[in-house]
């Protein structure tokens, strides 16, 4: 038996909105410690990794490790039927090919139940090692979203460069070019407005803006985002989910032919 109740059901809605343009099907890998999802886009250049600890759910019950394969289209349709302040309970019995969703309003007056057929999804799992990044930049998530949106008006690619002077985003195309510099903030009122730059080594990488714009669909999940960069390695974009989980996106850099 698997059962997990998320008090803030809107978090699930936001998670699905954040990935539905990148992947079509997902496997929920459920264990006693929590739920994880790993999925790649069809081009195999970006990967989504969601990790949700069991402590984010009340109750959480997972008697035996179970993998639940779901089509995001169906999931998206069902979850859209929940109100933002509803709790969402996910239930699956062993040996059945359905997953159940129960939505409950805060006062308990309205409950809704939905069922989705499970799918057999062939997914490749990649082992992502703990990486020592050259630079780790934490910034407001809306700021990162804005930069990606603005830069995609100029070109298809964005160059991200971290030096001791800060982080620079640049793009160029037929129309012209643009550069945006961010420096580490000194004094800010709110921690979530802070720009924090950890620099071990200067780093300079190019990425496809199309994917970064997909990743920023996760902005409603968190006020902050972390960019982890390493030379000649995939970028890792992390959105924390409350204090119990995270959504990470990995993207291969563009390289010289």
């Amino acid at each position: 038996m698997f059962e997990a109740r998320l008090i803030q059901g809107s978090v699930l809605k936001k998670m699905i909105d954040a990935i539905k343009d990148i992947v079509t099907d997902i496997n929920l890998d459920c264990s006693s410690t929590g739920i994880s999802v790993q999925a790649m886009d069809s081009g195999h250049v970006c990967l989504v990794l969601i990790e949700l600890g069991s402590d984010g759910f009340e109750p959480y019950r997972c008697d035996r490790n179970i993998t639940l394969g779901l089509g995001l289209k169906a999931l998206s349709v069902v979850v859209r039927c929940a109100n933002n302040d509803d709790s969402i309970t996910i239930k699956a019995q062993e040996g059945t090919d359905n997953i159940n969703f129960v939505f409950e309003s805060p006062n308990g007056e309205k409950t809704s139940q939905f069922e989705i057929k499970l799918m057999d999804i062939d997914s490749e799992h990649l082992g992502i090692p703990d990486t020592e990044y050259d630079s780790v930049v934490k910034m407001p998530s809306h700021e990162f979203q804005r930069i990606c949106r603005d830069m995609s008006q100029l070109g298809d690619s964005i160059v991200v460069a971290c030096t001791k002077d800060g982080i620079q985003f640049s793009a160029s195309g037929d129309m012209g070019s643009g550069k945006i510099n961010l420096r580490q903030s000194s004094l800010v009122d709110k921690e979530e407005d802070q720009i924090n730059i950890e620099l071990n080594d200067p780093v300079h990488l190019t990425f496809a803006l199309r994917y970064l714009n997909y990743f920023t669909k996760a902005t409603p999940l968190s006020p902050t985002v972390t960019l982890s960069l390493k030379a000649e390695s995939p970028l890792c974009v992390t959105y924390p989910i409350g204090d119990f989980g995270s959504m990470k996106f990995f993207l291969a850099p563009k390289i010289d032919d």
Binding site: M40, G43, H125, L126, G127, S233, A252, I255, D256, D257
Partner: peptide, 14 residues
């Protein structure tokens, strides 16, 4: 500058 290698070339398939 348009090549992106698939992630499989960066990370192992365990």
């Amino acid at each position: 500058k348009n090549l992106q290698k698939p992630l499989l070339l960066y990370y192992d398939d365990p």
